[in-house]
Design a protein around this nucleic acid. Sequence first.
DNA 1: AAACAGGCCTAAA
DNA 2: TTTAGGCCTGTT
Length: 270
Amino acid sequence: MPETQILTEDDFDLKKIFECGQCFRWNREPDGSYTGVALGRAARIRRDGEKIFISGDERDLKTLWHGYFDLERDYRTLRQAVCVDDYMRSASDFGAGIRILNQDRWETLCSFIISQCNNIPRIKKIVETLCREFGEETYLEDRRFYTFPGAERIAALEPEDLAPLRCGYRAPYIIATARAVASGELDLEALSKTDLATAKKALTALPGIGEKVANCVILFSLRIGSAFPVDVWMKKALAEHYPDGFDSAVFGENAGLAQQYMFYYQRESS
DNA sequence: AAACAGGCCTAAA
DNA sequence: TTTAGGCCTGTT
């Protein structure tokens, strides 16, 4: 299996990218590399000194990973942009290397429905079981992986069929959402071309999708940077550092990135 | 054992 | 418009 170098000057920290809470299918290997399945492809990514390598050829890099890892944007500049005060300077310095992934829309939506009121190990376990049960086999270095099943596949199931996932009350939410996506009633690609308010309204209209899940989906897969997910960690961070109130609008289109820095800072330093 | 975990929904003020 | 309690399940 060939591998290709990802040319990036800075701001590419594998641990931070994969462990800042935005994705659930990348895992650290004993050698420090990460393996995972994204965009229908199993892959390995590793750092060697200053260089980053990912499995696959130049074409894969161009058609898949360039967009996925958000290589178009200069994060050094973005980090400066979110330094609105001392706290944000600390948070963005601490989080240097984080990038916001551009993930598959349906996968992100489904994964964050699963995430509600769950801890990360269990979220990952449920997602992996979903893929093993309903996804397709794919191989990397003779090792078997499973792709994330398409919305059409899940739409054809009944909530009971998800019993092996042990995802409890989330099962009907998953099925209903899969059907909305598969039927075109919820057009995620079209939403990615709208704005935060429009996308949020459409998403939260579905059962099991509230404010928080919608914001995550919008930020991590619809590429709308003003989305600002607030979970329990973020509530803590905001209460601690902005006791008199806070408006994510100060960050404009970089609010989502600012959120990632705050979230990661809050989690990793406590 | 009882509480809680990276929310959401419904009912009730 | 805001708040409380319940919800599947697994872990502590």
